[in-house]
Design a protein around this nucleic acid. Structure first.
Length: 625
RNA sequence: GGUCCCGUAGCUCAGUGGAUAGAGCAUCUGCCUUCUAAGCAGAUGGUCACAGGUUCGAGUCCUGUCGGGAUCACCA
């Protein structure tokens, strides 16, 4: 048993790689790195399960590719029990694997509830994700962030890490003050309860109102004498009036806007701990958190540790002093502190303002060290949109130069913007896809389509609701995660609720089919123990076995690349193979008891891996649909 | 302008340097008396942005060009 277990764990590919390296040594007296031997799955049109690329050995053997392949093939069949047969086509050595290997593999997989999960590696890794501002509700962009982040925590956990899930909530600053001021001026004491609005949306509505009022104020100001003067003296050549005032908006807000002055005054009061302002801030943030909680719960995610920017925004000044001592930083005449990263292809960067206050990066330096001490993590993953690529390059390089012990364990999981088919989402144009809206919509659609099918009518209302939610969320989540993180994605709301084709529900449906089989196995007390006697593995079955065999590699790959889309695409391919298997072969009505037991076992194993893989994406499986 | 990312079928996306570049959507055509047809099978659809180079072999690696995006704040 120990021997079988060993081979099972080692995977057939590494067995073959080692065997090929041994054959090259034996035949041509040359040492080859086994890990570099290329072993691929054989394309469908050829006979065989795995193929060895022999071109790299031609120079060593000093023979034609086909002759070299034949010699290695003969050696492998002679010396490797798993290799049943071989053939050579155009320099490719195709190997057939013995049925007994596949039978052992299948029983090993079924006996291992944690199949695909790697041994603990002794590292503790933090994943920071979501990290919203508290002035408005979550939208599509946050959903991508949250799903990537959550999925990353699951994958890293499976890959052997002890994972800590965190977010840093941007609960202070100009944005929340805008919501606060707007509510104070215009709300007449309305509350989420009095208006019957989800509380984070309620706060967001005041933010939107603020922006509207501000826009009106700006338009009026543009007619004033001051505005004409600014335009005349500052405009660039060829710049239209409209373009000029677009660019000038920030400057106007700081120098002329009445609302702007009021916001800054409020921010100042907050920084000085003015009791009324702090109370208002707490009240409105409380509304936001209550709303966020609901959205997080709908998405099925949570956190181990929350950080608030109001607690961390002053951190990092001690590191600045330290960096000055170590000559990593330098001070300019005006008192501001900088780091020179030009030799790393980056620029000079401010780490402390001339007035001694923090900038964004100061806080991140401080937070990193605090987390290292507080959480005991030596690796950190920041799930943040790609517009901050440069910031993280600078941050990581700075931490490295400061000699921080975790500096080699930093990773920015950068992801591209979510766009609509019509272009970028814009708050001002009301084209932002709200998180709660899209969640409600996918569940509604799943419900609608399910009632047309009528397949889940016989189950309890609780189970029914749960299944429908899982299908709807499965559609949404898979749609987002299947795209590689670094690519920007086009979010088509109509396609995201599709339940057919390359979708979450397609994968869930294969699982539901398997679930139905397993319930019948239970009911009829089918004995699966004769599965190992099956000796006529069909192409559709082989396809599944090869895919199942690959699962641990895919988990490792997804972890190595911080790329959940690898898991998504794998699950889809596996489900596709299963649907074909289901269609082409009889399972319960198989010709022999062995075939029936084998196919049921294979189905069970497929269900196990599909459930495991989808779980890494945060997608739950329905029992029926 | 500097740096980074992207460019694959009408659309959305896959594709550890390996065989004839694949899926889904859309369009068209078949398959439910049999384990759930949210399924299966087939047809149509490609100058892998362009030009060089490395290699036995390039969608993949290198250089350049073009197109799209991000960023280069004492903002976060």
């Amino acid at each position: 048993m120990r021997f079988i277990r060993f081979n099972f764990m080692a995977s057939i590919i590494s067995t073959l790689q080692k065997a090929v390296a041994a054959s090259v040594l034996s035949l041509y007296n040359d040492n080859t790195d086994a890990a570099k031997v290329q072993v691929n799955t054989t394309p469908p049109d050829f006979t065989g399960d795995y193929s060895v690329v022999v071109f790299p050995f031609v120079k060593i053997s000093k023979k034609a590719p086909d002759a070299t392949a034949s010699e290695i093939g003969a050696y492998l069949q002679e010396n490797v029990p798993e290799v049943k047969g071989w053939n050579v086509v155009k320099g490719f050595l195709n190997l057939e694997i013995a049925d007994s290997y596949w039978n052992n593999f299948l029983s090993g997989l079924l006996a291992d509830a944690d199949y695909g999960r790697q041994p603990r590696n002794g590292h503790r890794l933090m994943v920071e994700y979501s990290s919203p501002n508290t002035n408005k509700p979550l939208h599509m962009g946050h959903i991508r962030n949250i799903l990537l982040g959550w999925s990353c925590t699951r994958i890293m956990e499976a890959a052997g890490y002890d994972v800590v899930k965190t977010q840093i909530i941007n609960d202070r600053g100009v944005a929340i003050c805008k919501s606060m001021l707007s509510w104070l001026k215009f709300s007449e004491g309305k509350t989420p309860e009095s208006e019957g609005i989800k509380s984070d949306h309620f706060v967001g509505d005041w933010y939107v109102l603020f922006e509207q009022k501000s826009k009106e104020e700006y338009e009026q100001w543009q007619q004033t004498e001051d505005a004409r003067k600014q335009y005349a003296s500052r405009k660039k050549e060829e710049q239209s009036e409209k373009e000029f005032f677009k660019d000038y908006k920030n400057k106007w807000f700081n120098d002329y806007s009445v609302l702007g002055a009021e916001v800054r005054e409020m921010l100042l009061k907050w920084e000085n701990h003015d009791p009324e302002t702090v109370a208002l801030w707490k009240k409105m943030n409380g509304w936001v958190y209550k709303g966020f909680e609901q959205t997080y719960s709908d998405l099925g995610v949570d956190f181990d540790k929350l950080y608030y920017e109001s607690d961390t925004y002053l951190l990092g000044k001690d590191i600045v002093d330290e960096g000055l001592d170590k000559n990593v930083f330098y001070r300019k005449d005006d008192g501001s502190v900088w780091i020179d990263l030009t030799d790393a292809g980056l620029d000079n960067k401010v780490v402390l303002r001339a007035d001694g206050t923090s900038v964004y990066i100061t806080q991140d330096l401080g937070t990193a060290r605090m987390r290292y001490r507080e959480l005991g993590c030596d690796q950190f993953v920041y799930v943040v949109a790609d517009e901050q690529n440069y910031h993280f390059q600078v941050l990581f390089e700075t931490l490295k130069r400061l000699g921080e012990p975790y500096a080699e364990g930093l990773h920015h999981l950068s992801y591209g913007l979510v766009e609509l088919p019509t272009g970028r989402m814009k708050t001002r144009e009301g084209t932002v896809v709200d998180a709660d809206d899209i969640i409600a919509e996918v569940v509604r659609l799943a419900t609608e389509q399910s009632s047309e099918r009528g397949e889940i009518d016989g189950i309890s209302p609780e189970e029914k609701t749960q299944n429908l939610k899982r299908v709807g969320m499965g559609a949404l989540k898979f749609f987002i995660i299947k795209v590689q993180p670094k690519k920007k994605m086009i979010f088509n709301p109509e396609e995201s609720v599709d339940l057919q084709g390359q979708t979450g529900p397609y994968i869930q449906y294969s699982y539901v089919r398997i679930n139905g089989l397993m319930q019948r196995v239970e009911r009829e007390q089918v004995d699966l123990s004769c599965a190992h006697a099956y000796a006529n593995i069909q192409a559709q079955e082989k396809e599944l076995l090869v895919a199942l065999q690959d699962y641990p590699n895919i988990v490792a790959l997804a972890a190595r690349e911080y790329d959940p889309s690898q898991i998504a695409n794998y699950c889809y391919a596996l489900a596709k193979s299963y649907h074909r298997f289901w269609h082409d072969l009889s399972i319960f009505n198989a010709d022999t008891a062995e075939a029936k037991a084998f196919r049921l076992s294979l189905s069970k194993a497929t269900g196990q891996v599909l459930k495991s893989g989808m779980n890494l994406l945060g997608i739950e499986m329905p029992t029926r649909m």
